[in-house]
Design a binder for these strands. Structure first.
Lengths: 191, 191
DNA sequence: CGATTTTTTGAATCATATCAACGTACGTGG
DNA sequence: CCACGTACGTTGATATGATTCAAAAAATCG
C-alpha cells in the first residue's frame, strides 16, 4: 500500500526515522479516483498533498470558456494545488483524473502537526518545496526562453511516455500552444 | 546593519529564537557591490543567499550573444541562483548590480549548519522555499496564460517603481518580449 | 557639451492563432 | 459484432501579434 511512497520518502530523505514514518502511515489515507472524477475543483481550498500510486491526472483552469492545462501529474509523484494548500486560499485550478487512479492523501493538519513534532518532517517539507521550486525554475526557463518546438522536444526527452497517456490537445495547452500548432510541429519533426 | 534582514526574518518567522538569530548574525557578512559588478557569473556555483539592504541587481543568461533577463532583484529581498545554490551545480545565469548595492551574505555551509542545529532554521528554510515556489507559480501563470500586454500591466501593478530603476529593455527581456514591443505596448496603453 | 546608451518609430517578415473542414479512432448500444 | 456517434487529430487558408532590422529621436553620463 505505502511501498511506493516509502521509496519516495527514503530517496528524498535518507535520514527519515521510523518514528516519523510511523506518524505518516498512521495518517495516510488511500483513495480511488475514477477517470473523469475531480480531486479538487477551482475555488475550493486544497486540503491534501496526494501521492499517486497509479494513474494520471491533470490540472486545468477555465479561461474564456476554454481549459488551460497547468499541470500533468503522473504516478510516483505528488499532485496538489500547493499554493492553495500552503496559503489556505481558493485554488486557481481544478484537478481531474485522466485514468482511474489510486492516491494516498496526507492532510494539511496532519502535515503541520508532523512538522511540529519531528524535525525530520520539517526537513522533508523543505526538500519538497525546494524540489518544486527547481521544477518550476525549469518550467519558467522553458516558457521564457524556448520556442514552441523546443518546448515540445524538451517534454518528449524528459517524458517520452506522456504521449501514450495524455491526449495531444491537453499537452499542447500545457506547452502553451494550440493543438493545431502541436500537430504541425510533430509532423515537421517526424519527416 | 542587520535591521532590515531582522525585520524580514521576524515577519516570515515570528517564532525565531534569539539563539538562532545570534547564530545568523555571527555569520552574516556585509558586502558592497558597485554598479556593474558581478555577484555571480554564469557557470560558477552559487555559494550564498544574499539579502539586499539597498540597491538593485538583475540576473541574465547569454543566449545567442544576447542577454536574457531571468530576474530583477530589489532591496529588502533576497538575491541568489537558488537552484545552483541548492544543488551545488554551475549557475545558469549571472547576477550583476544595476546600482551600487549593499548586501548581506549567508553562506551555504553556515546555512546547512543552521538547519542541523536549529529546528526553527529548518522551518525558515522551508518558508523561503515555499515562498519562492509561490512566486514562481505566479510567474509561470504570467508566462503561460497572459498576453505580453497583460504581463506588462501585471508588472506595473505589482511593482510600479520598477520602471524608475530598471532600463526598459531589461524589463522587456524579463517579460519575454522585444524592447520594441514593450515600447509599443506602453504607447498604446498611455494614449 | 559631446558621446554613448536607451527608447521610439517604421517596414518587412515570421510564427502561431484562429476558423473551418475533413479524416480517423474509439467505445457503446443496438 | 457491426454501425454509428462523439472525441481527437490533421490540414488548409487567413488573420494577428510580435520579431527583426534600420534609423531617428530622446535621455543620460562623464
Amino acid at each position: 500500500m505505502f511501498d511506493q511512497i516509502h521509496q519516495y520518502y527514503k530517496n528524498l530523505l535518507p535520514e527519515l526515522t521510523d518514528e516519523a514514518w510511523a506518524y505518516c502511515t498512521e495518517r495516510f489515507t488511500v483513495r480511488s479516483v475514477k477517470k473523469g472524477e475531480f480531486l479538487l475543483r477551482e475555488g475550493e481550498i486544497c486540503r491534501y498533498v496526494s501521492f499517486i500510486n497509479s494513474g494520471t491526472l491533470y490540472g486545468y483552469r477555465l479561461e474564456e470558456g476554454k481549459e488551460t492545462v497547468v499541470g500533468i501529474f503522473l504516478e510516483n509523484s505528488y499532485v496538489s494545488e500547493y499554493a492553495s494548500f500552503l496559503q489556505r486560499k481558493p485554488s486557481t485550478f481544478s484537478i481531474v483524473a485522466l485514468e482511474d487512479a489510486e492516491i494516498v492523501d496526507f492532510s494539511y493538519d496532519d502535515i503541520q502537526n508532523g512538522y511540529n513534532q519531528f524535525k525530520v518532517m520539517e526537513r522533508f517539507g523543505r526538500y519538497i518545496a525546494e524540489y518544486l521550486f527547481m521544477s518550476f525554475d525549469e518550467r519558467i526557463y522553458s516558457l521564457h526562453s524556448l520556442s514552441a518546438e523546443q518546448r515540445y522536444q524538451n517534454l518528449v526527452n524528459t517524458n517520452p511516455t506522456i504521449f501514450q497517456r495524455v491526449p495531444q490537445y491537453l499537452i499542447a495547452s500545457y506547452l502553451g500552444i494550440s493543438p493545431e500548432a502541436l500537430s504541425r510541429i510533430r509532423k515537421r519533426l517526424s519527416s
